[in-house]
Simulated assay, not measured.
Amino acid sequence: MVVDLHTHTTASDGTFRPMELIEKAKLIGLEALAITDHDTISGFQQIDETVEIDPKLLLIKGVEISAEYPTDSLHILGFNFKDSEKVGRVLNELIDYRNKRNELILEKMNNHGFKVTMEELKKIAKGKAVGRPHFARLLVEKGYVQSMDEAFQKYLKDGGLFFVEKRRLKSEEAIELIKEAGGIAILAHPYQILKDGKPFPIAPSVESLEDFIKYLKFKGLDGIEAYYSTHTNSQIDELLRIAEKYDLLITAGSDFHGDNRPNVKLGLNVPYKHIGKFLARIF
């Protein structure tokens, strides 16, 4: 079946408004769509409930929480949580800190001679949460760099000239928040957490990706994103094996951001037998 359980809108760092993303999903025949903006659920407040949603499209409330990790790559997806107020309150605290962080990045840029303003950033972001992709796009538009990739490599990557650390929940805190709100906690893009083929040693017993997933399972993790836009067939097979071994749910997501990641297309075609167990938890 054709689904996408990992997408972003203008509420974080995507370029499609929530209703636009839903319309695109309907147009290409998606059977299930989860909106999982970074550290915010505000996108769901922008969905017009008077607009008829195609009954063939299962729309799932979600979020992607950035968890504490040596690199900006450990993300926990939360799905179908019941207590939106609790989730929103905690995430808004993180957004408040992110706004302070953005001011610090702007200060660094202007001290370096780059004339940029928060008004320009907000115009690009269109939504609530300004993030590094918006800084990168602004640098491109103003001619300071030739591409967003150059902006990240020169200035915005971890340790870069304009980098300022995020405030994040610990992985177990992110999982706990989702579970306490009645939701499902999934490890996003597992292979992105690796460095030189191994995860960072967050615990003495963690030496491999399987160890890492097992560790998070012990902390309450419900499943893993086995199908992902950059996963190879062998990586998918390995994640399916791990999921079966530890009785974990399986999800599939592209990490669609619209024009901010033009090479990532909306929708993945995956066997129902692999994601059916997850979808059954949604109903």
Rank of each mutant, 00 (worst) to 15 (best):
I184V: 13
V63F: 05
T232R: 10
H134E: 07
K122T: 13
E225M: 08
H8N: 05
V3M: 11
A203Y: 10
T7F: 09
K198T: 08
V130G: 09
H6F: 12
L33D: 05
H231L: 00
E85I: 13
N92V: 09
T71H: 14
A151F: 05
E173V: 00
I76D: 09
S84H: 12
Q45K: 15
L240S: 02
S66Y: 02
L21H: 05
K273R: 14
A280G: 01
G197S: 05
N269Q: 08
V3S: 05
L248K: 03
K115Q: 15
A203M: 01
T50M: 06
A125L: 06
E93A: 14
L106H: 08
N263H: 07
K195E: 15
A11V: 06
Y227E: 07
K245V: 04
M148T: 12
I202H: 02
H231A: 05
I193R: 07
I250D: 01
L57I: 08
H112N: 13
D149I: 12
G43E: 09
V90F: 04
V270T: 01
F152T: 01
A203N: 12
S205Q: 15
S12G: 01
E165K: 15
F44P: 06
I95C: 02
L139N: 07
E225I: 00
E64G: 05
K214V: 04
K122I: 13
M19C: 00
G143W: 10
K217E: 01
N111K: 15
L33V: 11
I95H: 09
K198Y: 11
V63W: 07
L268W: 05
K179V: 03
Y272C: 00
H231D: 03
V264H: 00
P262C: 10
L91E: 06
I22N: 11
L77S: 12
D222R: 02
L279E: 03
K273D: 14
K126R: 15
R281S: 13
G14F: 06
Q235D: 08
L187S: 11
Y191W: 12
E172F: 11
K265H: 10
P204C: 03
A67K: 06
G160I: 03
V51A: 13
S229C: 06
K166E: 09
